[in-house]
């Protein structure tokens, strides 16, 4: 579904991604783990078109999307749930969700939007209760649900999520991760970026480890979970954190 070859990108003179090569098959949950500043967000932004690719290629459904601006990438069926939720704060929950359906309206599938709204409300019943509330007044967890719901409204073939668990309570994180596995069960494909490596590998099929802009390891999720290096560098800290939970 997604095939990236030797991708490089960065900000100004700073090169962040160095020859990143990876792929995602349809129906998979693939996770990218890595420390703060490794370039995970930059990678997702480059795929989504927010950050221009310097070299390499991004093939989505065998077509190159490397040079497309973000508003075109969504139309191809690839949606990003950005880091830090980025909901439309001064607008209502329902308006946020409607805006997520913009591509559907443009593709002449506006008639299906009603059902799609029911579907995301089914996944996140909390959003239905808060329908008329301004998105900026929601709790962090609810904003994350809204950001995911908004992305789902475009009916993406691939949904990319950038640290959906960031700053959320353990119970809320569990809900969000349950939704991610549910999406796979319903035929979706997910690219999940997480610092919470244990949780992410727990639900993923495969994973990549990103370190200072390079993929240093890849494999089946269980394989990575039992890898000593991964355990020391990325799971040890999580064990401490989970001890506190």
């Amino acid at each position: 579904m997604l095939r990236i070859k030797n991708l490089e990108s960065g900000y100004g003179r700073l090169k962040v991604l160095k020859k990143v090569t990876m792929h995602i098959r349809s129906g998979e949950i693939v996770t990218i783990i890595g420390a703060n500043g490794a370039g995970k967000t930059s990678l997702l932004k480059t795929i989504a078109g927010l950050l221009p690719a310097r070299s390499g290629e991004i093939l989505f459904d065998t077509k190159d999307i490397g040079n497309l601006p973000p508003e075109k990438v969504v139309f191809r069926g690839c949606s990003l749930v950005p880091e830090g939720r980025q909901v439309f704060a001064p607008m209502t929950v329902r308006e946020n969700i409607l805006l997520g359906a913009y591509t559907q309206y443009r593709n002449g599938k506006g008639g299906a939007v009603r059902d799609d709204i029911e579907r995301v409300y089914g996944i996140f019943p909390r959003l239905r209760e808060r329908e008329r509330q301004l998105a900026g007044t929601l709790s962090g967890g609810e904003q994350q649900m809204l950001a995911i719901a908004r992305a789902l409204m475009a009916r993406p073939k691939l949904i990319m999520m950038d640290e959906p668990s960031m700053g959320l309570a353990p119970l809320v994180i569990r809900d969000i991760f349950a939704v991610i596995t549910r999406l796979r069960k319903e035929g979706g494909t997910v690219l999940l970026v997480e610092q919470n490596a244990r949780a992410a590998l727990g639900i993923a099929d495969r994973g990549y480890v990103l370190e200072t802009g390079r993929i240093i390891m890849e494999g089946e999720a269980e394989e990575l979970l039992s890898n000593r290096e991964v355990q020391r560098a990325y799971l040890g800290r999580d064990l401490d954190a989970e001890g506190k939970m």
Partner: peptide, 8 residues
């Protein structure tokens, strides 16, 4: 940016 990610 979020608006552009919605296709706008």
């Amino acid at each position: 940016d979020a608006a552009r990610l919605c296709g706008i």
